[in-house]
Write a protein that binds this DNA or RNA. Structure first.
Lengths: 336, 336
DNA sequence: TTGTATGCGTTATCAC
DNA sequence: GTGATAACGCATACAA
């Protein structure tokens, strides 16, 4: 099987290579005769264009880089992020773009995010999981490569993220409707910007509702896992005579840990302490008691992120500070 | 900022472009003086090589294609597959390879898996989720592009997969130790080769142990989700006077559905019916009752798959029929 | 509407 | 040890 290029085709058909190229790229006008003849021959001979040559010449790679895992290594293992990436991938695919994971190891020497992107000539970048303080992320965002994020909020970055204010408001309103008076909170680590944001909103909404803020029923977990939730809830319960009657928890996973801790103290969910999670991962509906939670619309986040990024790429828009908030939804289940 | 290429470097340093290239690729011998001088200058001027040009010339892309989602669209959303991919990615990264999702849409026209791979000149392919009957998968596996799979078993394909015989044996032995006599099974859809395999092993092991096979306590679920498990268990329970006292279930997710169905019938888990799942997804330990299950070693699967594929790539080994089985582990929890 | 010439940035090959 | 040169496959400006 000979390697077949535009040249082969051109020669065998008695036309010029450029003609073949133009027909393939739908650029320029050609007689239907010629076009069909070339297309038919290409299919017949099994010609496949060479992406490298094309990228080299045209400076466009039709590839989007994805930052998906940092030091934390949660990346692919967190269902929330996987879901967002899946929708994003489907959306950009439809426009002809591929997805490639950004890596900082080429052979045995380290390569920065930005250099990797330059090396691969990616057209844009999606930051699904990243640290806003990582110098390499900063460098990338400040470059002229279009970036969007579905995670971190930063200067010069367009972020597509859940409407976390709405999430907290929905939670607190639901709690009040249930007649709950002592609404506590277990946040995740406050180093995560969106968790800090939610905590601040929590305090603001309490103030608006004239509910006193009591720091004794608020705690920040050490990590993001089940055990962190268990641990945080245990500490919180131990230090309170007058326990909270409802807990807002930073994620569903943490919430499951907290529920176990509550049960371990001999208290009932939701009778003694109700629990509202965040995310609506698939297990929220499967667990018993099933978890009342704030559903993040991962499909919409992925889809909008794709739209924003492709718009930047195709219309040459530079990186800019922006936040697009995607509405969330309160899903009432058995824990409230 | 001028674009800087090997040519620029060569000119400014008074050497030949080929020399620069060779120093960068650690190929050929050079005086330490020259090498250090070139390396220093490259760092100084901020040179980033162009991957396309390199691929074009050298015919090696340092990229591995991943088939991760087919019609089913489960792909990224299934934690088992995500975990395998994560480890695989980490392993190949360390050797300098990137991961790129294989896509069949380039611009507005469809492209087969094989053509995509040729187009991108990928060095190898990992099939994380695929159908063994898909003509495009078959075409790819029969090509000279190295492939491994962590999912499907096929001619001409090296598959790295859990030791499912061991998994079934461990489950049944555990059941017998618990004094269970009527061991039923809820398999997933038997169109999945590994699920069919497990079902066959189940029958074999029963025979070895002289336990009669009763098709009334065996059922195949319609799908892979929680509801499929619920539905299958309900049907199974409804049609039996003498109910099973233990159920082997094809996956943890299905098992959770089955447990709900059992409870809905007013039966207790594990007292009336014990349940053993498969996979050990993270929720297995979080649920109440926590799920006894067969843990698949996703890290090992991903790691071995990387080793096998890189060996094929780097030593020019063609596709071949093979199965590497990774040991599983019985995790005893509250459902038994 | 079609063809010609050139270059994208790198590396393989051969020569010195 | 180091350099000159061609070629990888395609797309573009320009010419016809």
């Amino acid at each position: 099987m000979e390697k077949v290029t535009v040249y082969t085709i051109a020669k065998n058909l008695g036309v010029a290579p450029s003609t073949v190229s133009k027909i393939l790229r739908h650029t320029g006008n050609f007689s239907d005769d010629l076009r069909l003849k070339v297309l038919a021959y290409i299919k017949d001979i099994g010609y496949v264009p060479n992406a490298s040559a094309r990228v080299l010449k045209s400076r466009k790679s039709w590839t989007i880089g994805v930052i998906y895992t940092e030091e934390s290594k949660i990346g692919l293992e967190h269902p929330l992020f996987s879901n967002i990436l899946q929708t994003f991938k489907d959306s950009v695919e439809r426009e002809g773009y591929d997805i490639s994971f950004i890596v900082r190891q080429i052979g045995d020497n380290h390569m920065s995010y930005l250099n990797w992107c330059k090396n691969k000539k990616v057209d844009g970048v999606l930051i699904v999981v990243g640290s806003p303080y990582n110098p390499e992320v900063i460098e990338l965002v400040n470059s002229d490569i279009p970036c969007v994020s579905t995670d971190i909020v930063k200067e010069h970055l367009h972020t597509i993220i859940s409407d976390n204010r709405q999430g907290i408001e929905l939670s607190i309103n639901h709690a009040l409707e249930l007649g709950k008076k002592r609404i506590g909170m277990i946040t995740g680590p406050l180093t995560a910007t969106h968790l800090l944001y939610r905590f601040n909103v929590y305090k603001e909404v309490l103030k608006e509702k004239n509910i006193p803020f009591d720091e004794k029923i608020v705690i920040s977990s050490k990590g993001f896992g089940f055990n962190s939730g268990y641990e945080a809830a245990t500490i919180l319960l131990d230090r309170n005579e007058e326990k909270p009657d409802l807990l807002l928890v930073g994620s569903d996973i943490l919430a499951f840990g907290a529920i176990q801790a509550i049960v371990a103290k001999g208290l009932r969910v939701p009778e003694d302490i109700a629990v509202i999670g965040y995310d609506d991962i698939i297990f929220a509906s499967m667990a018993r008691p099933s978890l009342t939670t704030i559903r993040q619309n991962t499909k919409e986040i992925g889809k909008v992120a794709a739209e924003v990024l492709l718009d930047m790429i195709e219309n040459n828009k530079p990186n800019h500070t922006a936040i697009t908030r995607i509405p969330v939804e309160l899903i009432k289940r058995q824990t409230t």
